[in-house]
């Protein structure tokens, strides 16, 4: 996966002040948008489903027109259950989507058939989920899910291909245990037992002491 920004291509296709001006503009814009994976829980139990979302944030006036992201995972602990895509690049009708499990990474990609103007009206500068991956937690232990390679195209693929930080999420997968009652329930239960034993002892003495 090409993780480089297409500066050389741009140099080849533009010239002089025009190039300089757009590079400045690109730098301003590229620094704004963030691509990241996020999760709602980090300590799932073994056998649970672990879901991560691929987010785009701080889009501003730009758009996302396509993405091609490799997401690494540890196949010893996790296995891919399902992949789903968001709707703001065309929802599979006006886009083409693909998620392929390569064993230790998922290639997650979509490209929109829509123009930047259509995408702009769809995305409207909001943060949104590009797609989600659901894993089954097969084993206990600590594991990570990370973006390995990412290429994301914006309104103009020549000048706005940007990538997010290669963030990594860490999860602790717990073993499955018999559920323990709460302490106060145990105390209540113990007090109740002591009380019954005391009452039983008194009753015996009076009955035989007579």
């Amino acid at each position: 996966m090409n993780y480089k920004l297409p500066i050389k291509k741009l140099i080849n296709k533009a010239a002089g002040s025009l190039l300089i001006a757009f590079l400045v503009l690109w730098q301003n814009q590229a620094s704004a948008t963030i691509i990241s994976i996020e999760a709602s829980t980090f300590s799932p139990n073994q056998g649970d489903t672990l879901t991560i979302d691929l987010w785009v944030r701080d889009l501003g006036l730009d758009v996302v027109s396509g993405y091609d992201v490799d997401i690494n995972f540890d196949p010893a602990i996790l296995s891919l259950q399902s992949a789903s895509f968001g709707s703001l690049l065309g929802g599979g009708i006006d886009s083409i989507q693909d998620a392929v499990d390569f064993g230790n990474y998922i290639n997650f990609a979509e490209i929109s058939f829509l123009s930047e103007f259509d995408l702009s009206s769809l995305q409207g500068g909001t943060d949104f989920i590009l797609g989600s991956l659901s894993f089954l937690t097969e084993q206990t232990g600590t594991t990570q899910i990370s973006i390995a390679n990412a290429l994301v195209t914006g309104a103009d693929p020549f000048i706005e291909s940007f990538s997010g930080p290669a963030n990594t999420l860490t999860f602790d997968i717990n073993s499955t245990q018999v559920p323990e009652p709460n302490i106060w329930l145990l105390m209540v239960f113990g007090l109740f037992v002591v009380y019954r034993q005391q009452k039983h002892s008194t009753n015996c003495q009076s009955r035989f002491g007579e």
């Binding site: 396509g66 091609d68 290429l151 693929p157």
Partner: peptide, 23 residues
């Protein structure tokens, strides 16, 4: 983009040349 590598940048570049709207 003639960089000898095929990727989604090529796809989006071509999207701009689509014959009809929404390709």
């Amino acid at each position: 983009d003639s960089n000898m590598l095929i990727n989604i940048t090529d796809g989006r570049l071509c999207q701009r040349s689509c014959t009809l709207p929404r390709c």
